[in-house]
């Protein structure tokens, strides 16, 4: 119980079906407060389904999901307060300005307007986009939109940030900026992060890693420990062996 309290995220024995298809099979993982955790899996591994369960888009029917000790099913209000999410699909309103998008999100968290604007400017400043606050989102580049989405997710000062394939469709420079920024948030603010990706190079060997494949957790732990355990050269070869990539399943 005590260890759970220290966990930013605790997923225990969660399964999920879409009709007949099993999307998640007895998935368990935990992220200590203030840690960066990479959720590594190919497309269709169940990453987005897991995110949908954590964000309570649909309920877990088995096991439990806890955010900062609050059960997402039993105390969704408390759990969702602690949660910031960057979805895989773009979720900003292109017809509204950056600031309007931010204040809308703040309203969804019950923040007063003036305070919301201050918070928004502060967060935009951290992603160096405060000078674009008045512009329509449509005018931003893909990388800038992602940075705005991260700023928006942090507006209500959550303890846990979920990012679902945040670098998809971005060029190398924009991708590096975003990874660096999120890692800095972990280091400076003690934010906990769950970073879902299919790109191994986005995860370092010092990070916590959870390898998800066909809805099951194949390995979990510190990257270097996993490598040692499987007597492999690097994470990539562990992943390839576990996920059977190379036998026609490359992403």
């Amino acid at each position: 119980m005590n260890t759970e309290a220290l966990c930013a995220l605790n997923v225990n024995g969660v399964s999920h079906n879409y009709g007949q298809r099993r999307a998640l099979d007895d998935v368990s993982l935990s992220i200590p407060a203030g840690a960066f955790c990479g959720l590594l899996g190919l497309n269709g591994a169940g990453k987005t389904t897991l995110f949908s369960l954590i964000t309570r888009l649909f309920d877990n029917t088995s096991g439990h999901v806890k955010v900062m000790g609050h059960d997402v099913r039993r105390a969704p209000k408390l759990a969702l307060q602690q949660l910031g999410v960057v979805f895989q699909s773009r979720t900003l309103d292109p017809d509204l300005s950056v600031m309007q998008n931010m204040t809308y999100h703040a309203a969804l968290h019950g923040l007063p307007h003036r305070f919301a604007r201050e918070r928004a400017m502060a967060e935009l400043q951290r992603v160096s986009l405060d000078d674009r606050a008045g512009e329509k989102v449509r005018a931003l580049s893909g990388g800038q939109m992602r940075r705005v989405e991260i700023a928006r997710a942090l507006l209500h000062q959550p303890k846990l940030l979920l990012l679902d394939e945040p670098t998809v469709g971005l060029d190398v420079g924009a991708r590096r900026d975003i990874i660096e920024h999120v890692r800095q948030l972990v280091g400076d603010d003690g934010l906990s992060v769950l970073w879902a990706t299919h790109l191994i190079e986005e995860i370092s060997e010092q990070d916590r890693v959870v390898i998800l494949h066909h809805g099951r957790v194949l390995a979990a732990g510190i990257g270097s420990d996993i490598i040692a355990m499987h007597k492999a050269r690097d994470l990539k070869s562990v992943f390839n062996t576990l996920a059977g990539v190379g036998v026609g399943e490359a992403a």
Partner: peptide
Amino acid sequence: EMGTMRTLLVSPFPRWFL
């Protein structure tokens, strides 16, 4: 509007209210 719906539903306020 898929994305918009997701953003809306992760608000901590109860779903019936949203």
